[in-house]
Amino acid sequence: MIKKESAKAYWKENIRYVLILLLIWFAVSYGAGILFKDALNNFKIAGFKLGFWFAQQGSMYVFVILIFVYVRLMNKLDKKYGYDA
């Protein structure tokens, strides 16, 4: 029974991480790169209009970071629940 409880708690925490990370995933690509591109294009970093930069560069960098953050979070979570054996 305890085993089942802890599996449930583990799953809940995992889902929370996933939702938060997917929110960022959505915000940088569909948000900054597509929906709000025109507004962001009013700002410039060096030669890049910001919306254009998010669409063709920034979102991809964030994607990579998101996965490695998830790897770290989950490795910690596995340890916390003793699933890292």
Binding site: L22, A55, S59, M60, F63
Partner: peptide, 13 residues
């Protein structure tokens, strides 16, 4: 660019 990379986030998560 976004389409062919963003899918990996879904894959990993």
């Amino acid at each position: 660019l976004m389409g062919w990379t963003g899918g990996y986030v879904l894959l990993a998560l």
